[in-house]
Nucleic acid binder design. Structure first.
Lengths: 116, 116
DNA sequence: TTCAGACATCGACAAGGGTAAATATTCATC
DNA sequence: GATGAATATTTACCCTTGTCGATGTCTGAA
């Protein structure tokens, strides 16, 4: 078993759900990613960033899209970032988040990949 | 908007994450499914059922696969069932759960579907 | 260097969720 | 019907998490 398994690695390497039972370690890490997406606000944030032109969006735009405080949005973005779903880049005063489409594709493969 | 939108319907009908921003209602329901999978035990349960021959498994087997109490497993199976990910069938004294592969495929399409 | 704006972090609180013990329900068998 | 086995439900506990207000940090401009 890999003691340093990260969410990104777990999602990238493992077989589809339906092929063989997920190991405890892999399940632990994959569930981190799914838990990150398992919140309505974060799911919409992810969708907003991913569907934005260039696959990236400024935090200033994201804040306005919700009826939530700025710290709350910042917190959700951090969760998505730590799960490996968003990349963060600071340009001047502004912060931009970019969707990790490879993570989304790998995660989709784990969930819906055809067995065998 | 659809006031009676269920998780199953939301996952089946909506465009991929990266195509256009998810509506509040859809995000709410899709997040229910993702939240259901966003737990290590439930993820392994889902994988155990889906990878089992015939795509179904008996609760009696599932209980033995974890170091958790029977009510806890039963609770997790209920969450997966209510999210539309598992179907339940009682045969005699035993309960069998079957994986909704269509849900898994639709969910994968929402997450990893290629935009446009 | 001071100021203002953008974003992150901290601290705290209420709501939600995972867990197990106890109990209930359902079905096959005696 | 009474008993026992397989699951589900109820109740309660504790830890996690979503949220906000206050504060901190960093950057560009004056």
């Amino acid at each position: 078993m890999n003691p340093d398994l990260t969410p990104v690695q777990a999602v990238a390497c493992c077989s589809p759900l339906a092929r063989e039972p997920l190991s405890e370690e892999v399940a632990e890490q994959v569930s981190v990613v799914l838990k990150a997406l398992g919140d309505p606000v974060r799911l919409r944030l992810m969708s907003l960033v991913a569907s934005h032109e260039g696959g990236e969006a400024c935090v200033c735009d994201l804040n306005n899209a919700f009826d939530l405080s700025q710290p709350t949005i910042s917190h959700h973005l951090k969760v998505l970032h730590e799960a490996g779903l968003l990349e963060r880049e600071k340009r001047g005063v502004w912060a931009y988040y970019r969707a990790r489409t490879d993570m989304l594709e790998n995660l989709a493969a784990v969930i819906g990949g055809t067995p065998t």
